[in-house]
Design a protein around this nucleic acid. Sequence first.
DNA 1: GTCTATAGGATGATAGAC
DNA 2: GTCTATCATCCTATAGAC
Lengths: 192, 192
Amino acid sequence: MKTRSRKKEIIDVASQLFKEKGYNAVSMRDIAQEMGIKAASLYNHITGKQEILSTIILDVAQKFTNGMNKVMMEKSSSILKIQKIIELHIGITINYSEGMATLNNDWMHLNDTDRKEFIKMREEYEESFRQIIKQGIKDQEIQARHPEVILFSILSTLRTLYLWYQKRGKLDANILKKDMVEVFLNGIVKNN
Amino acid sequence: MKTRSRKKEIIDVASQLFKEKGYNAVSMRDIAQEMGIKAASLYNHITGKQEILSTIILDVAQKFTNGMNKVMMEKSSSILKIQKIIELHIGITINYSEGMATLNNDWMHLNDTDRKEFIKMREEYEESFRQIIKQGIKDQEIQARHPEVILFSILSTLRTLYLWYQKRGKLDANILKKDMVEVFLNGIVKNN
DNA sequence: GTCTATAGGATGATAGAC
DNA sequence: GTCTATCATCCTATAGAC
């Protein structure tokens, strides 16, 4: 296996610590100690703590943007698109759960420029999702309820999947996807 | 109107700031400044920053425990109990959204004793919810899917309601409850 | 690429005057 | 109950030796 670059190693170690304690509760000394070096040495590979945060969050945000763009270009039903989005979230959560945690909890600590960029990406993502739901209602695939409630219910679950996945981790991703799709599409009530 | 005690005022101001920036990004000086006094003066009313955090989180956690205990004692169907839980979350979110944010994001910064107490309360709360779902499946009110997926889907949405409520705030609580109950109970698909 | 040393500032908290 | 003054500690980041 090729050895990771030192910079990537910093990002990985920091992601793990940020997930556990949050950005502000983790010091450069903590990150360095976990790597077995001194804090000053970190600055040979990165410009500062802010760069670590930006890299973690914007990388994950970009994966969501790319995934959503792909879904939007498909010519499938709204229901199928929503299934693809659920799949997208499960995939990213499995592979980047630390980044997901940091994105959710510490985006407000990004510097001005990166925070604005992040918020823009998030808003566009949500707007795409909203359009899919509205189209589904229009096409009579989705029940005519307040689109915001549908959007929020699904998105809040998907966003915090990382909390759940680490606990019940070994559940197969395909089973998780299947059950979650069914809960959201068909609800939980029997005999309806 | 009766003037709030100085201590309660500190808790309220801190809640708001913790919600916006997180526990570790808010200094005693920030809290004091918001109140128009000096940081040193805070210590006449509280023992320290940790006490503020514990008070905020354990107060909200207690409300959830009390509410869940009430639901558990009812002799109603599982579906009706779940509706009551959704109602409980919406009520607490509306009245204590700052505390909900801090409970969600900063519980890991509680001191050892209070953190253990919080985790215990949370686990008992989740276990009660799990029992309701399992009973519902047994009674054939709820579809026989993995109870953990149902539990997590509903709970993750309810836990982050505060994020949504502040944005779309003016939506009436009763409409929100009605729509959310329908999304979870019957899903979003039309003609199923 | 890592180290030691240190600058420069913020932090939680205390002592004691008023 | 609030203030000023201050302590001891921690923080991010830099300079310069090796």
